[in-house]
């Protein structure tokens, strides 16, 4: 009855259920793995299991039955359970010491209010600044009784090793492509080819696939076709392409541009795959097989790899070093059209 709404992660679900059933609940967990694959959902479900008023149901088969409707589970679902609390990065700079002290420690150091366990869930744990992480160490090492701390992170390597070593680690992998495609098509009305590209581009993260910019996704074909046909000798073609790109500095434009980079990267990858003899099923752009084959005949593998390298550098220049987007893109297009 638990984990019903969560796709995949069968091993992790079973492992968590087993710890509860055998009363081997750890005081601290680190759930890590790519963004948008359900780590947070799993942590909420785990909190429900720990506090469910129908405790006996844990021994039943997990997949059977309806979702629990006891008060505790309902409250956790709504985020208003007094013993289950979230610490989140609130879009300021990072999670600071005060937040850890006030939102975790002060609440953990009292006995549970209505549940059996106090569950503190720290989402995007890598956002804790070093001071916050250090302040957390003492509590993490030996929290008060009946406490469970769950850290969630997509970049566990950004956490201090001392934090990692105090937690039981549970790795989450991206979802398989079949599951992703099935779920994705259930929730959107995109064509199979477009859905496939979205799945390919999001590396097993359903959250990311659903969050992709639909407009850019629909322009994908056009972008690729245009890029394949640009003649570097005609400045107007190069400039025209760059002009059609979202080069503004708003976060929305940045996101779109990043997506365009990913589209280009997937396209170059397709080219390499064709060159080294993979069949069409492995391509991301299954609807563009013929133009890709045509280009593959023209370009050598080294040449394409060179372009990919250039693309990567351009990505760093734009998104990490704040270079002039216009110039970087023009350079990039010239290089690709070479």
């Amino acid at each position: 009855m638990f984990f019903k709404n969560i796709i995949g992660h069968e091993f992790q679900k079973k492992a968590l259920i087993r710890t509860v059933r055998e009363s081997r609940i750890s005081h601290a967990y680190l759930f890590f793995g790519p963004d948008g694959i359900g780590k947070r959902l799993i942590s909420v479900e785990f909190a429900k299991i720990l506090n469910c008023l129908r405790g006996e149901s844990i021994t039943e088969e997990v997949s059977k039955g309806e979702r629990c409707d006891c008060h505790s589970c309902k409250k956790i679902e709504k985020g208003i359970h007094p013993d289950v609390f979230f610490v989140e990065y609130k879009g300021i700079k990072n999670i600071r010491v005060d937040q850890i002290r006030e939102e975790v420690e002060e609440r953990l150091f009292l006995t549970p209010f209505e549940g059996r366990f106090k569950v503190a869930i720290v989402d995007e744990a890598e956002r804790m600044n070093p001071n916050a992480q250090n302040a957390f160490l003492k509590t993490l090492e030996e929290p008060p009784p009946d406490s469970v701390i769950i850290l969630i992170s997509s970049r566990p390597e950004a956490l201090l090793p001392t934090i990692r070593s105090r937690c039981q680690l549970l790795e989450f992998r991206g979802l398989s492509e079949e599951i992703m495609l099935k779920e994705f098509r259930k929730r959107t009305d995109l064509s199979p080819d477009e859905a496939w590209v979205a799945v390919k581009l999001s590396g097993g993260s359903l959250g990311k696939a659903l969050g992709l910019d639909k407009n850019v996704l629909s322009e994908r074909k056009e972008i690729i076709l245009k890029l394949s046909e640009i003649n570097p000798k005609y400045a107007s073609q190069v400039l025209g392409f760059v002009e059609s790109m979202p080069t503004g500095s708003s976060s929305e434009d940045l996101e779109k541009l990043m997506f365009v980079f990913e589209i280009i990267s997937a396209w170059l990858r397709d080219l390499v795959l064709i060159k080294i003899g993979f069949d069409e099923d492995h391509l991301s752009n299954r609807d563009l097989v013929s133009p890709i084959r045509k280009l593959a005949e023209k370009w050598s593998v080294d040449n394409i790899l060179d372009k990919m390298k250039f693309l990567e550098n351009a990505w760093y220049a734009v998104f990490r070093m704040n270079a002039n987007k216009q110039i970087v893109l023009e350079n990039l297009v010239l290089k690709i059209a070479e």
Binding site: F109, L110, T111, P144, D146
Partner: peptide, 9 residues
């Protein structure tokens, strides 16, 4: 009626 959560230490 006053109810106070105890300190868990």
């Amino acid at each position: 009626i006053l109810i106070v959560r105890l300190i868990d230490a």
